[in-house]
């Protein structure tokens, strides 16, 4: 059987969940891995809960479905906690990483009965400090890579820089790179 890692990103419309799922996939492709990355398409509304998926494997795989049983869940927006079942379908012993400023015990209280490794990082604070606005999508992926080394951080930073250069915002690429490194270092 091919070993596959399924990542689900839970965010809100406008926070870059879709972009981050794609960039995670692009970083994996740089490493010669195989991917299937896409958002859960529906009506697009800023602020509405959204999900995006990245399926990664070192070997070629055939699956062509949305991710229902993720190995890893990355929660970009803390306001989803307690409102959206972000642990839905998570494989037993999987990983949840949240953008969260509070205490770990409080965070864990949202996942009572869920068999998961739970991590947190204050991505909002890092994003505001380093990027100047609350867009914590790539920041969260930086933190994620510390606890789930799906790709090398340097490769994710590289595709992120390329992305921002392509849309004419090279300085945002630098800012995100710094913020991703910081989140990688600070994640608990």
């Amino acid at each position: 059987m091919v070993e596959i890692k399924d990542v689900r990103i839970n965010g809100r419309g406008g926070q870059g969940a879709v972009t981050s799922s794609r960039l995670l996939g692009e970083a994996a492709i740089i490493e010669n891995q195989y991917v299937h990355a896409f958002p859960n398409f529906g009506p697009e509304r800023a602020g509405a809960p959204v999900t995006a998926f990245t399926r990664i494997s070192k070997e070629k795989f055939f699956e062509k479905t949305e991710v229902y049983f993720p190995d890893v869940v990355c929660v970009i927006d803390p306001s989803l906690l307690g409102k959206v079942d972000v642990a839905s379908g998570l494989k037993s012993g999987g990983t949840i990483i949240c953008n969260y400023a509070g205490e770990m015990d409080k965070l864990k209280s949202y996942f009572k009965g869920v068999d998961a490794k739970i991590h947190k990082v204050d991505a909002t604070k890092i994003a505001i400090a380093e990027i100047g606005k609350n867009i914590p999508n790539m920041v969260m992926l930086g933190a994620l890579l510390k606890v789930e080394p799906l790709v090398k951080l340097e490769n994710l930073i590289e595709v992120t820089r390329q992305y921002f250069t392509k849309i004419g915002k090279a300085s945002a690429g630098d800012q995100n790179a710094r913020a991703m490194q910081k989140a990688y270092d600070e994640v608990q």
Binding site: E26, Q33, Y34, V35, A37, F38, F41, K64, T65
Partner: peptide, 12 residues
Amino acid sequence: IEGFIVTHALER
């Protein structure tokens, strides 16, 4: 090619 699951999904 099928909508979204192929048309909008990133692959190598």
